[in-house]
Nucleic acid binder design. Structure first.
Lengths: 248, 248
DNA sequence: CAGGAACTTTGACCCAGATCAACCTGTGGT
DNA sequence: ACCACAGGTTGATCTGGGTCAAAGTTCCTG
């Protein structure tokens, strides 16, 4: 299965599914050629740790397919997820020797990696890369701040509804459809991972999901497959104002 | 008093107290001349709102002196601080028409503003500005993620100790001294602002500060002047591992 | 197809922090 | 000098979500 992934991993940037969204999105063909020289693919199985906080980082890179989590842990084991890495998201910080967070593959994962030193050199010469990275970092900062409101001020039910609406909205944008009306998707996270994202216990996550189901806000088939009959109802439960946080 | 601030505001970038830390830190003299053409100073009194979320933003800029807060509010009034803006911190997002957060001056405030459109143009031509902004944004993202752990997983006492240690550490870095041993500083925030930062009520903030005082972790003169006899003890209370989060 | 292991749900109980309320303290205005 | 008021403290009580415990589901693996 890993061998399969390696075989099906894009060899050519032209075929790459994240070509227009990743850190290389703005690159011209010649810049892409440069990047191509220092890139290589790595695959990870679901559950595998990509990086431990404090590890030396020889590379930076982009998630091509699959999902990974960025987590921080206290000595006594309390864990907080601080980022959810989806296809096109960037891992690592140019100029930084050591990883700041744990990166764990939640599903099978393919990453497009660049050796760090050459990448930093390329970044200094190629404004298109730095520009795109700035834009992506600003987006991540907005997402992190949005999440601070969720963590600091929302109730357990609102937290769950917020997470579901984020996942639903992202799924819609992948399939190029609007975030409205009936929506169907699969949860990419276990109850425990959700609890780490939301600053709750897994029992509370389970209870609140059951409650939303009972109230008809969502429907469940199995543990992971979710149907949202009316997206606006879900947004009401999340306590967000109407606009859905889409500012520009 | 406002007139005073205006008079004492630096007219020349050479004298500017944030020259080596702000978004202009990397600029060459000629680049600085360009920036100088589109810059102007604005002052705000303590308590004044600099920007409302959703406002049209005609400018971006840097905090020169004073302190401001970045907050997000839900319709029912629940408020979460998502950033604390200190001298040299940047306000606004290039390319974004409207403010995403409320910006409120916590103390009297002087800002160095740039008209947004010309600034965006300059950024495209001057890699030094974009480079520095990327670096600053990555630092803010790290700070936001650190705060997600505080909000999601720490107890009230740990939250207070975390906030105090952040403030103490920052004060130390301003006075170029090490963060260790006995430290003395003033709280730049009201109890209510602290509660908005930490996702607590102001009563809980007050109680936990009293508890830390009773336990000898801190001493108080008046409401704002804090003495930390042993910084390591405070860090223990914050639940942080020894390293203090200084990764690079 | 039995036996696990990982994940999930549900119930009973408890407690940290919220809420409601009273009072204290310092500062500026008239 | 007095008052008003913003900011802060402290007490009493309540409750949302945590903790502990048990059992149900799904999916492997032998």
């Amino acid at each position: 299965m890993l061998a399969d992934d390696l075989k099906t991993a894009p060899r050519d940037c032209g075929d790459c599914p994240i070509r227009h969204k990743a850190v290389c999105a703005r690159c011209e063909p010649d810049e892409l050629t440069q990047l191509d020289k220092i890139k290589y693919y790595r695959t990870f199985e679901a559950g595998q740790t990509v990086l431990w906080a404090g590890d030396h980082m020889g590379f930076v890179g982009s998630v091509v397919t699959g999902i990974a989590t960025l987590t921080q842990t206290m000595e006594d084991g309390r864990t907080q997820m601080v980022g959810l890495l989806l296809p096109s998201d960037f891992v690592g910080r140019p100029g930084r020797e050591h990883a700041s967070y744990n990166v764990v593959a939640t599903s099978d994962l393919v990453m497009c990696c660049f050796r760090r030193k050459p990448f930093e050199g390329l970044m200094a010469e190629t404004p298109h890369i730095a520009q795109r990275l700035l834009e992506m970092t600003l987006d991540e900062l907005d997402a992190a701040r949005e999440w601070m409101l969720v963590l600091g001020r929302k109730t357990a039910r609102e937290k769950i509804a917020s997470l579901l609406s984020v996942i639903a909205r992202r799924n819609a944008s992948l399939s190029l459809s609007k975030a409205e009306g009936t929506m169907v998707f699969d949860l990419p996270l276990t109850r425990e991972a959700m609890s780490d994202y939301l600053g709750l216990t897994l029992e509370t996550v389970s209870r609140q999901i059951s409650a939303l189901k009972k109230d008809g806000i969502i429907q469940l088939e199995g543990k992971r497959h979710v149907t949202v009959p009316d997206f606006d109802l879900l947004l009401d439960e999340a306590g967000d104002d109407g606009d859905g946080g889409m500012l520009s």
